[in-house]
Nucleic acid binder design. Structure first.
Length: 213
DNA sequence: ATGACGATTTACT
DNA sequence: GTAAATCGTCATA
């Protein structure tokens, strides 16, 4: 008899990541972002909101114009790396690198519907400066929030999601129908049109864990 | 060495 | 709706 679970979770492998950023952003919706803590405890959430960043030509991307620094080096790595950056002096954001090596394109994970380890997420999020009571919808409904809840920081930058033991993507149980998705402009960009209003944000329609409707 | 900025979050009017 | 919080990072000197 096998000691494996009867329904083993299928983990994303290299070919799943080796697609263009828009395709990756679209396909990540409905998948599970998994974080294994050092003590083995498991946190996870279903991805409900993503954004695509298209690389050198994209004024909204950290890699616009081929900009390459210590901070964004992971964007130039092979598909499947995770690019974690720190911003506004207090928040981390996590991306999944797409495309090919040396092609700095990625999908930003902007929101999750919490699945596993919700009490741990709550504890991690409670550590933040906060006065109002913490609802479940406050745990992962934004790129900075989900990193805090999932304990993701620069220590995970450059990890390979295809092989890493602490952070990876598992195939979601449900097939997401195109009719259940919305596309809209990306949030928080410093650039102007046309890149600021290109429809490069994907959301699971009507989900309550979105960063914004 | 210095200054400006940011793929955000939170609280407040 | 607006504004503050807060600091690593990067471009400039």
């Amino acid at each position: 008899m096998s000691d494996r679970p009867s329904t083993p979770a299928a983990r994303w492998r290299r070919p799943d990541y080796a697609v263009d950023a828009e395709t990756l952003a679209r396909r990540l919706i409905g998948q599970l972002l998994v974080r294994i803590l050092e003590d083995g405890r498991r946190l996870s959430g279903m991805i409900v909101e993503t954004e695509a960043y298209l690389g050198r030509s994209d004024e909204g991307a950290h890699s616009f114009g081929g900009r390459r620094t210590q901070r964004n080096e992971s964007m130039y790595g092979p598909p499947g790396l995770c690019y974690v950056y720190f911003t506004y002096g207090m928040h981390h954001c996590v991306n999944v690198v797409a495309g090919k090596r040396e092609e700095p394109v990625a999908a930003l994970i902007r929101a999750l519907a919490p699945v596993e380890g919700i009490p741990l997420m709550r504890a991690a999020r409670s550590a933040s400066r906060r006065k109002s009571p913490l609802q479940e919808r406050d745990l992962c409904s934004g790129p900075g929030k989900l990193c805090q809840a999932m304990q993701i920081d620069r220590g995970l930058d450059g990890r390979d999601l295809a092989t890493d033991e602490e952070i990876f993507i598992e195939r979601g149980v449900e097939q997401i129908d195109e009719a259940d998705l919305s596309r809209s402009a990306r949030i928080g960009l410093g650039c102007g049109p046309p890149w600021s209003n290109a429809p490069l944000r994907w959301t699971l329609k009507g989900n309550r864990h979105l960063s914004r409707p």
